[in-house]
Structure formats: structure tokens, C-alpha cells
């Protein structure tokens, strides 16, 4: 009975503490000045308290980002936990902002906080959504781009969780390649 009461009245701890960051593009400020830590949480209940309190991604203005990263990892390539890593990138067409963006972002958040990548969840650093006029982007960042088994497992599970058809191909890009790209496209290191 006591166990039941504890179960009923205790919050459900997550494996990790997570930090939500918000980026708002103000050209008069530096990139880092535009990045703000919103809050941290480490239970299922506190995740929902935050999620239901903040603006849906589809309602943000262009140039804004949400980033959700494990506590201690900053949402930038330069962080030591990110610099050898990369991202599974979902690029959306403009019209998908009104049909799929919020659902995809919520599924992404649930995947990372629920540690849904089996033995490879420790590879995950965080997730990012970029709201952009030319097309929104969602990504899961992982810590080691050379970890083929981990990266491809995460990609397969992620694609399935988003409900993408087998005809859709998603790509993984190393941050090092994104940082040094010459054109607008970064080559995919892996695809699923």
C-alpha cells in the first residue's frame, strides 16, 4: 500500500536532467547573447509542465530555435560533447509547419527524454528545432559521428517514431562537415 502511494504521488524521474534553451534572432546581438537557458527538468511531470506552458514551435517567429540538451551540454558545435558528433536532420517543407511540425517536435522530445534508443541513448546530446521562413528543421544531435552502429540505430528508431514512410530518406551530417561546408548543402555521412 505504501509502495502504491509512493508510486501515485511521486514524480517519475527521467534518466537525465534536461535543459531547454531558446534562441531568438536579434541582429544587434551576438549569437551567444541571443541564446537563453529557459529552465531544466528531470521528471516526466516537470517536462509536461514546461511543454504545456511554452509556445508551440509552429507559433514561434522565423529565426527562433528551441534546443533541448542534456544538462551540462551547451547547444552548440563547440561544446566538447558535440564537436565530434553530428545530427539526424529532418527538413520540412514550408506547408508542413501547419501540419506536422509540432507533432514531429513532440515525438523528438519524447524520444530523447524517454531514452528510446535502447543501448545507444547515451550517444544522444540533445535535439534542436529551427524555425525558418525557407523551411523548418528538426534534428537529434549525437556525440560521435564515427559511431556507425549507434548513429544508424538512432536514425532508424527516430524515423520509425516520426512515422516516416520507407520511401523517405533522412540524413546524418557530422558537425565538422556542416561547419566547413562550402555550399548550402552538407553531405550526408549516413542515411536511413
Amino acid at each position: 500500500r505504501e509502495e502504491e502511494a509512493v508510486e501515485r504521488y511521486s514524480k517519475h524521474p527521467l534518466q537525465n536532467r534536461w535543459a531547454l534553451w531558446f534562441f531568438k534572432n536579434d541582429k544587434s546581438k551576438t549569437w551567444q547573447e541571443n541564446l537563453r537557458l529557459v529552465t531544466k527538468f528531470d521528471t516526466v511531470e516537470d517536462f509536461w509542465a514546461l511543454y504545456t506552458h511554452i509556445q508551440l514551435a509552429s507559433k514561434l517567429t522565423s529565426g527562433c530555435d528551441y534546443s533541448l540538451f542534456k544538462d551540462g551540454i551547451e547547444p552548440m558545435w563547440e561544446d566538447r560533447r558535440n564537436k565530434c558528433g553530428g545530427r539526424w536532420l529532418i527538413t520540412l517543407a514550408k506547408q508542413q509547419r501547419h501540419t506536422e511540425l509540432d507533432r514531429f517536435w513532440l515525438e523528438t522530445l519524447l524520444c530523447v527524454i524517454g531514452e528510446m534508443f535502447d543501448g545507444y541513448s547515451d550517444e544522444v546530446c540533445g535535439a534542436v528545432i529551427n524555425i525558418r521562413a525557407k523551411g523548418d528543421k528538426i534534428a537529434i544531435w549525437t556525440q560521435e559521428a564515427e559511431n556507425r552502429d549507434g548513429v544508424t540505430h538512432i536514425g532508424r528508431v527516430y524515423k520509425e517514431r516520426l512515422g516516416l514512410s520507407s520511401k523517405v530518406v533522412i540524413g546524418y551530417q557530422a558537425h565538422a562537415d556542416t561547419a566547413t561546408k562550402s555550399g548550402s548543402l552538407t553531405k550526408n555521412k549516413f542515411v536511413v
Binding site: 504521488y9 516526466v44 515525438e107 531514452e115
Partner: peptide, 20 residues
């Protein structure tokens, strides 16, 4: 023990009133 939750479990808490 790893705290691993599937989406249905997590979604169950979406509209649950906060515990005090």
C-alpha cells in the same frame, strides 16, 4: 536501472494535474 519510457507512458502524463 535505466529510466527508459515509451511514448504512450509519457503521453499519459500530459494532462495530469501536478502533484503537490
Amino acid at each position: 536501472e535505466k529510466k527508459q519510457y515509451d511514448r504512450e507512458f509519457l503521453l499519459d502524463f500530459q494532462f495530469m494535474p501536478a502533484c503537490i
